[in-house]
Simulated assay, not measured.
Amino acid sequence: MFDIVTKIIIVTLLNIKFIGCFRINHEMVDSTIKKWAPLIIFHPEEKFFPLSVEEYLEHVYPANSDGTPIKNDFKNDLNNNLPIGRSSHGVHLTTRMNLDDLKSSLSFLNGRNPDKFSVPSYVIVNECGMKKRSRGNFTFIASYWFFFPYNEGKKVCFLGSRIPVPFIPVLNKCLGVTKKIGNHVGDFEHITISFNSNYEPIELFASTHDIGAYYSYDLRGRVFRYKDQRRRKTLLKHINFPAEVRLDRNRPVLYAARGSHGLWGDRGRQRYYKLPNLYDYTGYGVVWRTWEDIQIYHLKYSKQPDWMQFIGKWGNPRDGCLWGLCELSDAPNGIVDRPVDFEC
C-alpha cells in the first residue's frame, strides 16, 4: 500500500511546477486551455480552410526570394532538413507546383473543411507565475494558432494600367481597373488568452491580420468586453471592433473573415484599412471546434516541433507589385517572430 501511495504522490508532483509561491498544475493548465479553446465560424462562401502544418510542408520547398531552391530540401525528412533559427532567415516555403495550376482546381491550398476533417490547432503556453494584473494573479498565457495554406486578397480599384494608383470607388463603382491585392500562400491567425491562478481568463486578444483587439473578461456577464486595440498606420484613427466576444459554453466565438481569415467578434462588414478601403466580411457558415484536435506546447518544458523555429516566410515570394501593393504578397513570418500580445 505504501509503495502505491508513494508512486501516486511522485506522479502528481511531476505534473506540478512551482513558480514563485504558486503551484502550476500542468494537467489543470492543459485542461483549462482545452476548455477555453475557441469556436471559429467561417463565412458561408469560404473556399480556403485551415490545414495542418505537417501536411502543408509536404507541398512546399525552401527557396530563396527568387525561387531558387536551397540545398536542404526537406520533402523526405521534415524534421532533419527544415531550416530553423537564423539559417531560415530570408527563406521562402515555396509551392512545388505552379501556383496558377494549384488555384485552377481544388488543391492543398483549399485546406480541409474542419466540419468534415480533423484539423489541428496549435497552442503555445507561457507560464508567468505571480503577476499582479487587473483581476487576480496573472499566471499563464495561451496563444492558439491556426494555419491556413492560402490567404485570398482584397479587390482594389486602380485608376488604370497607365496610372497604377489606388483609387476610392465612386458610388461603390470602380471607374478604373479592379485587381485582387494581397493574396499570399501560407498564413497564421491566432488568439491569445491570459489566465489567473484560479484558471479563469483575464483578457483575450483577437488577431486580425497585423492588427487586433483586446478584450477583458467579465466574470459576471460571462463575456469578453472590448478594451483596446492594436493598429498600424492605416489612416484610420480608430477601428470599430465588435464590442464583445461572446461565449458558447465557455468557449469564445470568433468569426473568420472570408478568404483572409482575420478573426472578429461578430458577423458583418468590418472596415480595417483606408486608402485603399479594405473590408473583412464575416458570416455564419462552417463551424470549427478547435478543441477537438489541439496540440499544446509549454515554452519552458515542452519540446516544440522544428517548424515552430522556422523564422522565414511561410509561402511564395511576392510578385506583381505596384506602389507597394502586390497581387501576390510575401507570406508572414513564423509564429516565434510575432509581436507579444501579453507580457509576463
Rank of each mutant, 00 (worst) to 15 (best):
D266F: 00
I181E: 00
W264N: 07
V165R: 08
V29H: 02
N333E: 14
I311E: 04
D3F: 13
S87E: 10
S197D: 11
R86S: 12
E200S: 03
L325W: 04
R230T: 13
D66C: 15
D3S: 13
V165I: 15
C326E: 04
I335D: 01
K47A: 10
S107D: 11
N183E: 11
Q270C: 05
C174G: 01
Y144N: 02
E46S: 10
I211N: 09
L102R: 09
K303W: 13
K34A: 00
R251W: 07
R318M: 14
T12G: 10
S52H: 11
F224R: 03
S121V: 07
R289F: 06
G129V: 01
A206I: 03
N98F: 10
M1C: 07
H89Q: 14
R318Q: 13
R338T: 07
M97I: 09
A256L: 02
N250P: 13
N126T: 13
K17I: 11
P317D: 08
L254E: 07
G324I: 12
D248N: 15
V245E: 05
K154T: 04
F148Y: 15
N151W: 07
D210L: 10
S118C: 12
T68M: 10
R23G: 11
V286E: 06
I124T: 07
F195V: 03
L235H: 06
F167W: 04
W323N: 15
D337V: 08
F117Y: 15
K313S: 09
W145V: 08
Q229I: 05
D210S: 15
E343F: 14
N98G: 09
F167N: 00
A206E: 02
T32L: 13
I141M: 15
I163S: 10
L171T: 09
C21W: 14
R231T: 06
S118F: 05
P339R: 05
Y226V: 10
K237N: 11
G111E: 02
D280L: 03
Y297F: 15
M28V: 05
D218V: 08
S302I: 14
D73T: 03
P332I: 01
F22P: 02
D30N: 13
S216K: 05
K180S: 08
L159V: 06
R231K: 12
G268W: 01
L14G: 14
A63K: 04
S65C: 07
I163A: 08
L106I: 10
Y61H: 09
G129P: 02
K154M: 04
V5M: 11
G283W: 01
D30A: 12
I9V: 15
Y301F: 14
W323E: 15
W291D: 02
N64T: 12
M130A: 12
P332Q: 05
Y217M: 10
I163E: 07
R267L: 15
L78S: 15
K131P: 05
L175S: 15
L99R: 09
T95C: 09
M28G: 07
F342G: 01
I163Q: 05
P252L: 13
P114H: 03
P242A: 08
N277A: 08
S88H: 07
Y272S: 02
Y150V: 11
L13E: 11
V177C: 08
T282C: 07
K17S: 12
V5E: 01
G320F: 09
R220L: 11
V123S: 02
F18H: 13
F205R: 02
K227V: 08
P83H: 08
G176Q: 08
M308I: 09
C21D: 14
H43Q: 06
